[in-house]
């Protein structure tokens, strides 16, 4: 019968349409599932990243946290060459040399970060800390700022007062583009640090120690081959950026003390 042919074709066409619809539905479902899977994967990934970031931040903050000063400081004594030694009596090693410039921002950062660790180590009798004040700047206004401050610090003859003055100078550090460390301020900060010596004011005003400071500074930069300030040396070896990580600095010094 001729009718068979078109009917058969019709059925197969309907079947084809139905199966196409089914395929389309399945495809939509597949896409929906894929989207959902994608969202889950995305959220999981972001979650894992956030967790890792949090852990790393915690570790970074912890290992770089500054110490608190725990007790009385070790005795501080001025040396004839202008360096300052902070050590318990009888402690001669390991030697921690700090080469710094009052005007240098990174030195201020070192002081803020690791200054307390150095004080604690000296107080614990674990190290002999030697401060070397330098002037690395060759341009104005930074050079004069540095020279005025360094000269004034040399006018302080008492160790404890010197350290208080030293810390104050960093607190008051001028920017590198402005004149600072004015003589009047230096005298006032000296008084705040407990300096009562009558000749302190004339010493600061007259910048009497500039020549001695400059001579020492030039000589040290040349002989120690310093790349810059601050440089912290442990038994003559530069600690590099370890000096900026209180926990690592402490560990290095304690290792050397063993």
């Amino acid at each position: 019968m001729p009718a068979e042919q078109p009917r058969g074709a019709c059925v197969s066409k309907r079947a084809r349409e139905a199966s196409a619809r089914a395929r389309a539905a399945a495809q939509r479902e597949a896409i929906r599932r894929q989207e959902q899977r994608k969202r889950t994967t995305m959220l999981t990934t972001v979650g894992v990243i956030v967790l890792i970031a949090g852990a790393v931040t915690w570790w970074s903050v912890r290992q770089s946290a500054s110490e608190q000063i725990t007790g009385p400081l070790a005795p501080i004594a001025m040396q004839p060459d202008g360096t300052i030694v902070m050590a318990k009596p009888g402690v001669t090693s390991p030697v921690v040399d700090v080469y710094e410039d009052y005007q240098c921002p990174a030195c201020k950062q070192l002081e803020l970060t690791s200054g307390s660790t150095l004080k604690n180590l000296a107080a614990e009798g674990k190290a002999k800390v030697v401060y070397h004040l330098l002037t690395i700047f060759k341009q104005e206004p930074t050079m004069s700022n540095s020279l005025r401050a360094s000269s004034a610090a040399r006018c302080v003859t008492d160790g404890a007062q010197w350290l208080a003055f030293h810390d104050r100078l960093y607190q008051e550090q001028p920017t590198e583009t402005s004149a600072g460390y004015a003589v009047d301020d230096l005298i006032r900060w000296g008084r705040d640090a407990g300096v009562t010596a009558p000749d302190f004011e004339t010493c600061v005003r007259g910048q009497k120690n500039v020549a001695a400071h400059q001579q020492y500074s030039t000589q040290v930069i040349a002989t120690r081959k310093l790349a810059g300030t601050p440089t912290v040396m442990l038994n003559g070896q530069s600690l590099g950026t370890t000096a900026f990580v209180p926990s690592a600095l402490r560990e290095a010094v304690l290792d050397a003390a063993r």
Partner: peptide, 16 residues
């Protein structure tokens, strides 16, 4: 930088 964040803080401060 991560080992010594104080140095990296200083580097950022340097830009003022």
């Amino acid at each position: 930088k991560i080992g010594a964040p104080a140095v990296s803080v200083q580097a950022v401060k340097a830009y003022q």
